[in-house]
Design a protein around this nucleic acid. Sequence first.
DNA 1: CGATATGTAGTCAAATTTGAATATAATAAT
DNA 2: ATTATTATATTCAAATTTGACTACATATCG
Lengths: 175, 175
Amino acid sequence: MSLKLLVLGLLMEGEKHPYEVQQQVKARGMDCYMKYAKGSLYYAFDQLEKSGMIEVKEVIRETSRPDKTMYGITPKGEEHFQQLLLEELQKPTQLTNPIYAALTFASYGDPQKMDEALEVNIQEVRRLTGLLESIQEQKRERLSWGARTILIGAIEHLHAEMRWMERIREEAWGR
Amino acid sequence: MSLKLLVLGLLMEGEKHPYEVQQQVKARGMDCYMKYAKGSLYYAFDQLEKSGMIEVKEVIRETSRPDKTMYGITPKGEEHFQQLLLEELQKPTQLTNPIYAALTFASYGDPQKMDEALEVNIQEVRRLTGLLESIQEQKRERLSWGARTILIGAIEHLHAEMRWMERIREEAWGR
DNA sequence: CGATATGTAGTCAAATTTGAATATAATAAT
DNA sequence: ATTATTATATTCAAATTTGACTACATATCG
């Protein structure tokens, strides 16, 4: 559960309720590289509370609104955060690309249809790359070093992926 | 569950029992890019059987050995395989790199320790790259086009990752 | 103006994934 | 010769993840 680092990290900045974390993830564009169902976030908060890493600070009741439960990080949580930070930095990228599994069995597929499917993929990667590059330009100096660095990494990753997929098409699927 | 494609794909080649699939994954070096606990494989077989994509062909009993349950793919399963193949080809790479989450909160970490952690990561990526490149050389022509293509993609990916991580260190973590 | 979509805040059952446990045989290491 | 590890084949409880659902408020649109 790498949502742990996300939650602890955002709580390092101050008390928050789960939904607020959700909003921050969107606002900072983290939703590009952190995919999860909303339910998981509440689960992460629960687990972190049970293990004493975070604690309830306040429950805000507004009439005709669901209650907001504000959480804050504990000293134990801050320690754990430091450790998690190092652990995550050590984890190498996973090579789990859905295309890899597909390529393994490409010989059983219809080349025409596979080519169309790959084209869809290429278009999507192109779109995403464009999106990230426009963020990079527009927000220029307003981005933190961390955010800028992640953008660079993601864009590089997508470029490499594009080149590779185009090569597959040029090689006509090895036929 | 992308194990579905794996199971169906390997059953396209003939009847197999779950453990045999496990062995094939290792033998073909697919374990580099397909990570899962063994239990998941049995679950995938169960689900595929329930939905009529595969069926039990035979149960082999050897004294003092667990039974082997041999499965074969059904016509319905072959159809589903074709569809899954296209679906997986369309799925763009996920940008879910553990380092991204860590970088987001790098400002709260100890630069010295983070640098050490990243160095560990770099070493591991270097090792893996070497491993894949040696496979690429040694098996040269004996690899199928698909396997060769996956290797190229994975190696490119790792190179891009390396360049990026080294840049982070050179930039001294933005400090 | 009423219908429809979007934002707020969270719950929960069901689906999936993990990882430890089982039990036996063969091989390797000291 | 005895201990330790690896290989064979699977099961299952527990941990995690998903995604549908609730319920009300505000904004949007023809």
